[in-house]
Nucleic acid binder design. Sequence first.
DNA 1: TGGCGTAAGTATATGACGTACGCTTACCTC
DNA 2: GAGGTAAGCGTACGTCATATACTTACGCCA
Lengths: 187, 187
Amino acid sequence: MGRPAQISRPAVLAAALEVADEHGLDAVTMQAVAARLGVTAMALYRHVRSKDDLLDGLVEALLTEFPPPDPGLPWRERLALTATAVRASAGRHPAVFPLLLRRPAETDQARRVRDGVLAALREAGLDDERAARAERLISTAVLGYAASEAAGRFGHHAREVRDADFEILLDVIGACVDPGGSRSCRE
Amino acid sequence: MGRPAQISRPAVLAAALEVADEHGLDAVTMQAVAARLGVTAMALYRHVRSKDDLLDGLVEALLTEFPPPDPGLPWRERLALTATAVRASAGRHPAVFPLLLRRPAETDQARRVRDGVLAALREAGLDDERAARAERLISTAVLGYAASEAAGRFGHHAREVRDADFEILLDVIGACVDPGGSRSCRE
DNA sequence: TGGCGTAAGTATATGACGTACGCTTACCTC
DNA sequence: GAGGTAAGCGTACGTCATATACTTACGCCA
């Protein structure tokens, strides 16, 4: 019952993401997002609780962008694919990405990604505690790298340099987890 | 000549840091900082160019908090001390710290810290290019860890767990740079 | 002694922002 | 159609950063 909806929560989040991508995070105002949807700012409040809720939703939307890696692949490849997907997401949405590091990350999508990483680590032979620890460190390093890159902390460096940096980061992570690595994070 | 100053740029930054520590980054408004100093908001503009300049100053102030490690110490210890100091700074000022990852970090203090790390890495035997690369990865990992911890991304974990995580991070970094480490970031 | 220049702080105003509250609109079900 | 109800709107308020112009309080020079 009631009047038919012109907008929806996903539409609000999509519009907000567009605004952020085009004009930066500061340009994400209730009025700007509403204008893009052809409604008034107050109309958004039927679909998001507050501006903070909208920003949380943006983070969630970002994490939904990349699919989980094929579970048939070996663990190391799954880790690399996930990390690369995260980095690519940061590249597509540099303005929004830093929010990932500031917010609790206890949403459904965040859990989905984390569980995938945990599964890969357990497959690599780590017990629950060590896998949890490794996941924390790995996601911190990857998020930190992606956020730094998105924020332009490496901005004066060419793309190839940053790609090489990231490869090394993946190598170190892999070597650290791999049972064959001599100085691993497994002891 | 002119009227004697009641406030100064350092005083403004100190007041802003207090506000941030006590009530969070969002509470750092020109009015709140000014009120703490007993002046009007506009008086601050004699000492900071804009609110952004004030926030940049906050980051700078944070980096000034810890002294450079004793140059007589071995490189590995210097790295660990710097990383630990950065982490401690994040612990003291969790609200401000995330700014470090969002801002260019091309200020004097940021350069001072970076140059210290670079010197340690060159002492470890890395050439200029590899040292620069290692510095980027190391500072990203350390900043990322400290920021995550400050933002509460590991919040539900006990202090000892986080301390142990950080130790492992330092170990991995050390092993990666050390000439003796088998899978190092030096090749 | 007194005015002048000048830098510090104030007063006031503006426009953008987030959001509370109450109203209108447009659909659904009887 | 009449009523219920959810969606979107109009209006209003308080807060924010900041521009502009004013006032205050000092050192200097006559």
